[in-house]
Design a protein around this nucleic acid. Structure first.
Ligand code: FES
Ligand code: FES
Lengths: 162, 162
DNA sequence: GGCTCACGGACAAAAGTTATCCGAGTTGGG
DNA sequence: CCCAACTCGGATAACTTTTGTCCGTGAGCC
């Protein structure tokens, strides 16, 4: 799985805290990651329709829907692609004892099992929304830090310890 | 996911049909895949303890336990590795608003969700054994073909159409 | 009209995979 | 007992996908 999924999910939780758009550079600075690469991930989120990009001087990224309407699976599929990890090559139709194509109406049992597991994985991710993540984070992070984060997102660059 | 997983699983179902060891070359010929590469996959299965290799003139590979005692997950983890797809980089501990390490006693919520999904995936694969796969294949493949396969595994190279 | 900002694609580096080879060890037969 | 054939095993190379970076283009704001 792509490592950028972690960044994207953290960015979504952060975006849900800000009413105004947040530039990609600021998101990168907040997480201390490569701005160029994070821009690519945000682009993927934009293509998937999860975030909306606003250009111009006070532009940036913002969620298109409420955090309760965005599942973790949405983000994962936007970054990693929606195609299943296991890909059947139809080995059974090759070799000296090949199964004739006419009998291959149903997918191979092995492919079925893999597909079922993949579905279980997706169902598990679909059950959690960004709002759930934020709610759980609020339970751990002290309220003061949350307010400081909001201020940091809103204002310019904060010089720590001043 | 590695494409060799499909080969390995098909090989396991095939091995469960033969009491005697089957050489890697024969397994490769049966599935019409690269013998050299399949050898590598079988090596991984051997390291994982799923199959036992016998050298010498009448050597080859054989399952170490009954097909009912080998799950699909065992094979997948042997080939693809047992580490989860999602890897948390602890982004929360970086950047200007970094969470102090002392508060990071529990894993990040996002990591928990990912881990839960991964567990669901593995549970799904663990629930199916090689024996289940064989039983399901027997329901589809005509008995005559199964017997021909057994004979092909036992005997030398079969010249088709002669 | 000048400025900043985000988008998009082009481009290089790294990792992981796919594929192949030859040597070490073992078995069976002469 | 020796030989020869056959097997696995690990080391090695080519390829593909992923990861990471960069700059040019176009759009909004002042
Ligand atoms: S032929 Fe693809 S999984 Fe069996
Ligand atoms: S810090 Fe790794 S998933 Fe949140």
């Amino acid at each position: 799985m792509s490592g950028g999924v972690e960044w994207a999910l953290h960015c979504c939780t952060l975006l849900s805290r800000s009413a105004e758009p947040v530039p990609a550079v600021k998101l990168a600075e907040f997480h201390d990651v490569s701005p160029s690469y994070l821009a690519k991930q945000l682009q993927l989120l934009s293509r998937a329709g999860l975030v909306r990009s606003a250009q111009g001087n006070s532009g940036g990224y913002a969620l298109t829907r409420a955090a309760t309407q965005i599942t973790v699976l949405d983000v994962v599929e936007a970054i990693d692609g929606a195609l299943p990890a296991f890909r059947c090559t139809e080995v059974r139709q090759r070799g000296p004892m090949a199964t004739p194509a006419e009998r291959c109406t149903a997918p191979c049992t092995i492919a079925q099992v893999m597909d079922s597991a993949d579905r279980a994985w997706r169902d598990s991710l679909r059950a959690v929304t960004i709002a759930d993540l934020v709610a759980d984070a609020d339970r751990v992070i002290p309220p003061e830090t949350i307010e400081r984060t909001r201020a940091w997102l809103r204002g310019g660059t904060v010089v720590p310890g001043t």
